[in-house]
């Protein structure tokens, strides 16, 4: 039986798709058979970030409506043998995601995968609710700014009232992932600190991903940022996934980087 994880945030543009791609890739890198599903029907871009846009033939909606089989629809990752992408439809509407249809597909995937990562669309409408309904665990992607934190709080409320587990009187396990963190701006008081966000949201912190040029580069190249093991963001995602899998790793990238002697002398 696979574990179903939703990557959600409420607010748009905080890094859900980047996180879904990085998280799924890191799980696969660590030997777990993983599938990542794009729930953003109509505005798909997980396939772009995963670098498989040109290999999409069938999509999630085709699969739900029985127009294709799982084997035809799943796209195998070009780098990792045990990672698959289930792309969203570009031409349909979010309402095409029916409750029964999504459940059927998830059940089918559950039989052969270890992890199912659901990339939620922004907002709290139908698409986002479908993405989180079946989740057992949730990664709440939050930026260190007030509106993002507020929206995350809202989505946690929805997880606690409208998910399947909540309906059964159980709880979805929540993880806070703080992205686009910039310690310098925190120090200048322009950004909320990790402590501020933790205090407002009151859920366990899974990781802090620093604001990094590597993320944009990775998205544009269609290579999830965890493959860039030199980059700070890549390492931070790797840490987060290791922590998710139970490893004890200290949080990094929380402090301002001290400039090295050479940098101070020559600038940079």
């Amino acid at each position: 039986m696979a574990k179903i994880i939703v990557v959600t945030s409420g607010k748009g543009g905080v890094g859900k798709t980047t996180t879904s791609a990085a998280f799924a890739s890191a799980l696969a890198l660590k030997g777990h058979k993983t599938v990542v599903i794009d729930f953003d029907v109509g505005l798909r871009n997980l396939d772009l970030v995963m670098g498989c846009e040109r290999r999409v033939v069938y999509d999630f909606v085709n699969l739900i409506q029985g127009e294709s089989t799982l084997g035809q629809t799943l796209i195998k990752d070009k780098k990792l043998d045990n990672l698959y992408v289930l792309p969203a439809s570009q031409t349909r509407d979010k309402d095409a995601l029916s409750h029964e249809g999504v459940e059927k597909v998830l059940n089918e995937l559950s039989e052969s995968f270890d992890y199912i990562v659901c990339d939620s669309p922004a907002g709290i409408e139908h698409g986002a609710q479908m993405a989180l309904y079946f989740a057992e665990e949730a990664i709440i992607v939050t930026n260190p700014e007030v509106s993002s934190v507020r929206d995350s709080d809202r989505i946690i409320g929805i997880l606690q009232s409208k998910s399947r587990l909540a309906e059964q009187g159980k709880a979805v396990k929540e993880h806070l992932l703080l992205t686009r963190y910039n310690p310098e701006r925190v120090e200048r008081g322009e950004m909320l600190s990790v402590q501020d966000v933790e205090e407002i949201l009151a859920i366990p912190l899974l990781g802090v991903i620093p604001e990094s040029e590597a993320v944009l580069k990775a998205s544009n190249q269609g290579v999830p940022v965890v493959h860039d093991s030199e980059s700070d963001a890549g390492q931070a995602y790797d840490d987060a996934v290791s922590r998710y899998l139970g490893e004890d790793r200290p949080h990094r990238f929380l402090e301002k980087q001290k400039k090295s002697f050479l940098k101070r002398v020559f600038g940079g």
Binding site: D153, R154, I200
Partner: peptide
């Protein structure tokens, strides 16, 4: 949580926080 509303006809005792 934000966006949630809790109403009770009587006294309400909340063990937890009330978010903005």
């Amino acid at each position: 949580r934000s966006g949630q509303q809790l109403y009770f006809d009587g006294d309400l005792f909340i063990i937890g926080m009330v978010s903005a």
